[in-house]
Amino acid sequence: MKDHNPPTAAPATSPSRRAFLRGIPVLTAAAAMAPAPVLAADATHHWAMLVDVRKCIGCQACTVACIQENAVPEGSFRTFVSTYSVKLADAEQPAGTYMLPRLCNHCDQPPCVPVCPVGATFKRADGIVVVDGDRCVGCAYCVQACPYDARFINHDTDKAEKCTFCAHRVDAGLLPACVETCVGGARIFGDLNDPAGELRRRLDAAKAEVKVLKPESGTEPRVFYIGLDERFQGRVEGQGTLWQPRATHG
């Protein structure tokens, strides 16, 4: 009874017209070798995050939720979403937006851990890399050693700080604040060791497209990305933001 198609059959489109809609190359061209996350041997859980960049809308809900949840001092960030205007060559669309949520990668080989002179930073059995605030001397060696700029000195506590995967929430059976409130649904959190879990299923399904930041650094991140463009995998070559820290602390 109902007609779901336009009454006039659409003629075959000329290639040039289709080209308008199809011709622009996707930035993420050939996927690099997908890192194959190994299941941790003993621990029951191995927490990890998958960021589906295609879903990110750059709303910074994650950024601000993290700040409120974790009382991050003004001007510091455990996570944020870098946003770029990218000029596109060979495309009718002159430029595009690229967003990249960044946070601690909870590396399996975390360079921040061995450098800590007092053993304050360590990787929990469940994969979460944390700082023991009772032990940290605030030497910032870990801050230097992290290849991802994921750490900073918290000026309220004068200790090293970073994303904890919201361990306090995860331990309570909840989701990290940034994941819970991700408007685009880009952040997926879960257990690498749970083959039936959402995270593992998505990782397995997306296999070849899964990438990590700075794979060459040997850090074996446990934050994975879908839709990660090579140009953004390491340090980004381009015009830096005009952002300036508002106030120096002292």
Binding site: Q60, V64, A65, Q68, L174, L175, E180, C182
Partner: peptide, 22 residues
């Protein structure tokens, strides 16, 4: 429904944006 339990919090994700939180 918002928790990790059975990944419910991912499937039924309920959000507030950055502006709202700020």
């Amino acid at each position: 429904a918002l928790s990790r339990f059975q990944d419910k919090g991912l499937a039924g994700r309920s959000t507030a944006c950055g502006r709202g939180n700020a």
